[in-house]
Design a protein around this nucleic acid. Structure first.
Lengths: 341, 341
DNA sequence: CTGAAAGCGCTTACAG
DNA sequence: CTGAAAGCGCTTACAG
């Protein structure tokens, strides 16, 4: 069933069918009803390839997730496999569906793949795209950002970025998150606070800035030996934390995400100590799956519902440099406690 | 950049460009190289809408996930939100990517949505589709199955289905899974074994059959009061298990999935008992996230890598009724133990 | 308000 | 082996 057949059955031209399908106003109610009736009866759906080719944007939104392992070792938690991304994928699908759009999920593991993606935007294959998880300052991402495609970047560009004023962004204010995590630990009496950082993404960089800001504000000197790089990965955090603890004996640890917090807690337990009695731990993300853990983790929550809703909303915003911010909320649970005097 | 421009630059016709792009054999090496060089130089990618419209199948595979709540209450773990599905989505994306295909993820919450999906197959918008999680015997799914679209159904049709011999299927042999779970419990000395079932899907039906088969084989009468319906949902399993335990005091529980096992274990703990000392528990799925739990769950594992690889492989199989089977493996951990005499 | 016609960028018989 | 041309099913100026 195509528009020509519908046109014949409704006794109008294909142009008119098209006008009805696209809800153009210059068609009288009577005609509209007549045509719509035939459309409904035959369950006609316009061929999306033809529409796209003729100039309409497809009702597909691309979700592009970095799947780049910069540590060299294999990582089962990357890309779509990461629990954070898995939750986000589900939320983005929901948000898009509410708008009548579908989601094409792409994991990007090689830079060349980004080149191919550009064709999708040029071809109108995609109405828009959402990019997440790419390294801060990644050249290929910056060059895409300069193309004026309809793309929302999540936690990718900050005020220091040359492209900041030409792109749509949702930023999660990770600086605030890191800051309030560490501030809370300080309020609990801790001063020897370690930080296990993420990787080369903006979120990690900002969380670390927040950590430093809180310390400075409270006149606690920043000790770089208390900052270790966990690459956002459980097993790396696990290993390095053991060394960190035996070398420097922190009383609290701020982990740049929940997954590493699991590794950190495991390390603490294996060293014969417990959380929070001996060491307080704060995570980041408030992963839904962490509900399953015996130990309820104090963590920073960014609502992924809010994040995905805002990202999708921006896609429909005409302004090419519109932006949204999500604020993290400190969720106080049982992995943190007052420093024993 | 389109095929006409490439044709001009390479001094051939658009037909020849098309032949090179599509790797047709009837073009001499010399011509191929000449054209390919121009294609590479200008990073030409054919417009996928035009290709599709002209008769080629798109390199997109649709993943259709049931998001149907038949319990009436809201369920945060459904559809793409379910951890099982989240893992599966990631795996399917990987498998498709290896074949050079992309994945369009659709959650289906209303029957009408299935009608629209049919247009995608008719339009060649999708090279194929993978369906998972729909109720056994669902009319709309059966009617789609009869259409001869390129679709693989996971755990949807069994030998009793009228459509069984006309569809591509991957079945996980849930009967074997349920059987070996319960057999194992019997070997551990248990006879009072309860079963918390899933919902109206084939996987659940078969797991229950396996439970009954093992009991019958060992001459243990099937006691229907020991079988309760958990709808595959943690909180329902949690509530009903409390009643089950106080009413019938089973010494072992076979849960139709891991998520419910969490609710079951929570119920057991809250009633002052522990796992496995007082009650042994077996789950199903071996969710990756369950690694995070303090208690390592004895469970049935179906490799989602294998499942998605097989599903994608079938999509490329010409035979419209080709099929694959995945065998579950019993993973013995620490939530099960010998019955205390 | 409405239709005829051009055009979107491919693929594929067809003819040579 | 190769090109001219028709056709895929829409949308959209354009003319009326």
């Amino acid at each position: 069933m195509n528009s020509e057949e519908i046109a014949k059955l409704a006794n109008v031209s294909r142009s008119t069918v098209s006008r009805v399908v696209n809800n153009y106003k210059n068609v009288p109610e009577e005609t509209r009803v007549k045509v719509q009736k035939v459309i409904d009866q035959y369950e006609y759906t316009p061929n999306s390839s033809a529409r796209t080719l003729a100039g309409k944007a497809n009702n597909i939104i691309g979700l592009f997730i970095a799947d780049i392992d910069n540590t060299g070792s294999s990582n089962q938690w990357l890309g779509a496999n990461s629990p954070y991304n898995a939750e986000l994928i589900a939320k983005v699908i929901q948000s898009c569906k509410r708008k009548g759009y579908m989601v094409l999920v792409n994991t990007i593991s090689e830079k060349e793949e980004l080149k191919k993606m550009e064709a999708f935007f040029n071809n109108r294959m995609l109405f828009g795209g959402i990019f997440i998880g790419f390294p801060y300052g990644m050249k290929e991402i910056e060059s895409i950002a300069e193309q004026n495609y309809n793309i929302v970047f999540i936690d990718q560009f900050d005020e220091d970025s040359k492209q900041y004023n030409m792109v749509k962004t949702v930023n999660c204010h990770n600086l605030n998150g890191g800051y309030s995590a560490v501030k809370y630990l300080i309020e609990l009496g801790h001063t020897k606070i370690a930080h296990v950082t993420g990787d080369n993404r903006l979120s990690s960089i900002e969380r670390e800035e927040g950590y430093k800001k809180a310390l400075k504000e409270m006149k606690i000197p920043v000790d770089s030996s208390l900052i270790i790089n966990g690459e956002y990965r459980e097993e790396i955090a696990y290993k390095k934390t053991k060394k960190l603890i035996s070398d420097y004996k922190p009383t609290a640890i701020f982990s740049a995400n929940d997954i590493m917090a699991l590794g950190i807690i495991k390390a603490i337990n294996e060293m014969g100590m417990s959380v929070p009695e001996d060491i307080s731990v704060i995570g980041y993300d408030h992963l839904k799956y962490s509900e399953w853990m015996q130990l309820d983790l104090t963590t920073l929550e960014v609502s992924l519902d809010e994040l995905s809703e805002k990202a999708v909303k921006l896609l429909f915003n005409k302004k090419s440099n519109s932006r949204e911010i999500c604020q993290p909320v400190l969720v106080k649970k049982y992995s943190t406690t007052k420093l024993k005097k």
